[in-house]
């Protein structure tokens, strides 16, 4: 159970609540017993189907009942119907699950049933247009999942579903439109790490397929991140994404440029943990990867150690980590 407050009831309120719950409980148990008995006797009637709808509205986590419903679809409802009727039937279940998701956005069973419905959308409406039903359904799904992400931009069920929809669409939108979607989400809230994550996946694809020029696009990413960093230097989402852009630090010029820019921010915000953390990370990369081109390696080492000592003070919960990194730098330096 998440986020349900503990309440102190008065004796009278407790009694009233018990009575209300008692009535609800009686109705729930009667319905649940009925549905389970019908399931056991393999009842595939319309009446049984309607009862599962009622029960799932009361308890959408009852996965055994979703299973029973799916058995009814496969064994009884689909075989008696034309493709257009099957499409309609499934579209009713998509409406039902959308309604349920609005109240229970994090119930696995509802998302799962939705996906099952999609997998059973029939070919049609005609031999010339076999993807017609699927196309209109998938377009609606994209709309539904955007609604869900408008309500909670971090709902990972919704993001996973979104990726699934995009990956299985009969006529997928160009990948660049997904990049634009993440831009909108990020600009609405820089702290939305789910959107940064999605962006990293979309960009990787766009670079691999050549749809975006990697060098140019990465330049734009650094610009976007810089805005976010200046807006809220304490937001770790942005810094984690920045570390991804830097990657394994193969470009010395890039490292040096970012170090300078972060140093400027640190000068303005002298206690910024994430500025210091990132400076240490990138200076270490310079030392490890570009030692041969470094004028003054000792200055870099000293600066890392100084930053780590400061991090240790301003971020005591993680001081052991800073100590271990400092020990690593010291011993690495002695070996050479």
């Amino acid at each position: 159970m998440h986020g349900v407050k503990r309440v102190q009831y008065s004796q009278a309120a407790l009694e009233a609540k018990k009575q209300r719950d008692h009535d609800k409980l009686k109705a729930y148990l009667a319905l649940s017993d009925d549905v389970i008995a019908r399931k056991k006797s393999h009842d595939m009637s319309n009446e049984a189907f309607e009862l599962t709808t009622r029960l799932l509205r009361m308890n959408p986590e009852f996965y055994t009942v979703w299973n029973y419903r799916r058995d009814m679809f496969i064994e009884s409802l689909f075989p008696q119907r034309s493709p257009s009727e099957v499409n309609e039937l499934l579209s009713d279940d998509l409406s039902l699950t959308f309604e349920l998701l609005k109240q229970h956005p994090k119930v696995y069973g509802i998302w799962n049933h939705r996906r099952w419905c999609l997998e059973h959308i029939p070919d049609g409406p005609s031999p010339d247009d076999v993807n017609g039903y699927r196309n209109s359904t998938w377009n609606k799904e994209l709309f539904v999942v955007e609604k869900m992400l408008d309500a909670d931009a971090r709902n990972f069920h919704a993001w996973n579903y979104r990726r699934y929809i995009l990956a299985t669409m009969p006529f997928p939108p160009p990948p660049k439109s997904e990049l634009a979607y993440t831009t909108r989400k990020i600009e609405a809230n820089f702290s939305n790490f789910s959107a940064w994550h999605q962006r990293s996946k979309v960009l990787t694809t766009l670079w691999e397929t050549g749809e975006l020029d990697r060098v140019k696009s990465i330049e734009e990413e650094f610009e976007l991140v810089r805005n976010a960093m200046y807006t809220d230097p304490d937001d770790q989402s942005v810094w984690i994404y920045h570390a991804w852009l830097i990657g394994n630090g193969n470009y010395a010029a890039r490292l040096q440029f970012e170090i300078t820019s972060i140093q400027e921010l640190l000068d303005e915000q002298p206690d910024s943990k994430w500025c210091m953390e990132s400076l240490v990370r990138y200076k270490r990369l310079l030392i490890e990867k570009h030692a041969e081109n470094l004028g003054d390696k000792k200055a870099l080492v000293d600066s890392c150690l100084e930053l780590l000592a400061k991090l240790r003070d301003i971020d005591p919960p993680r001081r052991r980590r800073y100590d271990e990194i400092a020990e690593g730098i010291r011993s690495g330096n002695e070996m050479q």
Partner: peptide, 10 residues
């Protein structure tokens, strides 16, 4: 006799 008990049978 608690509804939550039964709603979490799964």
């Amino acid at each position: 006799d608690d509804l939550t008990y039964h709603l979490t049978a799964h």
